[in-house]
């Protein structure tokens, strides 16, 4: 018995570098927020557009990571929940003319409720089978978006009135989205400091042991689904107001796979992972395009645009498989490795 304690104690000597790392971490987050707030002062319209898109995708990815990463409930219907938020919020803006934040909250609440309904299969099935059940959410909600023409505008969708935040135009919208993203990231982090977040992880790892600790597995799974969908709803409401259009093509299976890829590539059950994954997945096509525009012509590929779209999907697929195989903890896992190397030396 005494031996085992000594072994354990020997490995805790890295506690001090760990604390230094914690300070670096806080400093890093503060620097990031300052950079985000300062960005509009210098950035071009294009950069601002991409930055806003990244922030919206971060919100959706943080949500999906709660469901998939922390609670272990595989969902490939996430974009449908984004759609619920987008339509609900757009309809409020069009018919009631209510302020954006209220619309987004209503959109989030609508997505939460729809998420609870489609989360119900998770009570009985797990893993791949659950993923297939969430396809039902994807397809049935897409069907509603597309066919309920009097309300959703069918294939043509809804055109959303412009919002001007504090008379600052695109910059104001960007700052609002960043503020919402920061608040929701902090909220998700807080969740995992308490019994609620611990219960998600407990249910993911051993549901029988969770029960004898007093965790209601049914409620916990539904909550994980609902919360993930609520984050998606916020992202949807902001997305609609940002792009000023909401139509079914934004909420396809491919879009759901995009967010799942963001979670896997970024790092499951990690806030940093959600941030890195969403940023990487949003910017990757752009980086790819830039690279191809430089490399393409010398290599004899004149039709860069035609080449790009299939290449993008090949790279998406390769990234997911590559990360699952070589680093299941994703980009956040790579960061963790670098940290371990840095603190060891």
């Amino acid at each position: 018995m005494a031996d085992s304690i000594d072994i354990a104690a020997g490995k805790t000597t890295q506690l001090v570098p760990g604390r230094q790392w914690a300070y670096w971490q806080v400093a890093g987050w503060i620097a990031l927020i300052i950079a985000l707030v300062a960005l509009p002062a210098t950035a071009s319209g294009y950069v601002l557009f991409m930055a806003t898109l990244v922030a919206i995708n971060v919100i959706a990815t943080v949500g999906l990571n709660i469901t998939v990463g922390y609670a272990g409930l595989l969902s490939i219907g996430h974009s449908a929940f984004i759609g619920v938020g987008a339509y609900a919020s757009a309809l409020m803006a069009i018919h009631l003319g209510t302020p954006l934040l209220l619309n987004v909250m209503v959109g989030s609440a609508a997505a939460f409720l729809v998420g609870l309904v489609f989360g119900a299969p998770s009570l009985r099935i797990k893993g791949v089978f659950l993923a297939i059940a969430t396809l039902a959410a994807q397809y049935s909600l897409y069907f509603v978006f597309q066919q309920w023409t009097p309300v959703t505008g069918g294939d043509r969708g809804l055109s959303v009135p412009q919002v001007d935040i504090l008379g600052m135009g695109d910059k104001g919208f960007y700052l609002l989205v960043v503020a919402v993203a920061v608040v929701l990231c902090i909220a998700s982090r807080n969740l995992f400091r308490t019994r609620i977040g611990r219960a998600f992880i407990a249910v993911r790892e051993r549901d029988y042991a969770a029960q004898v600790l007093g965790i209601d597995v049914v409620r916990t799974k539904l909550l994980a689904f609902g919360l993930g969908a609520a984050y998606a709803g916020v992202a949807g409401g902001l997305m609609g107001a940002f792009l000023r259009i909401v139509n079914p093509d934004q909420f396809t299976l491919l879009a759901s796979v995009f967010f799942l890829a963001a979670v896997v590539v970024g790092g499951q059950a990690s806030l940093l992972g959600s941030l890195l994954g969403a940023t990487f997945m949003t910017l990757m096509p752009e980086m790819l395009r830039a690279t191809m525009e430089v490399l393409g012509p010398p290599l004899g590929a004149t039709d860069v645009a035609g080449f790009l779209s299939p290449l993008r999907e090949v790279i998406f697929g390769a990234m997911i498989v590559g990360f699952l195989y070589f680093e299941p903890r994703g980009l956040a896992g790579l960061v963790e490795r670098v940290r371990a190397l840095a603190t060891r030396s």
Partner: peptide, 19 residues
């Protein structure tokens, strides 16, 4: 070990996310 106290703690999703 904290998970052992789950049944006695009271935070819900709302209060937990505000912390």
């Amino acid at each position: 070990i904290k998970l052992g106290a789950h049944a006695q703690l009271k935070a819900n999703a709302g209060t937990a996310s505000l912390y």
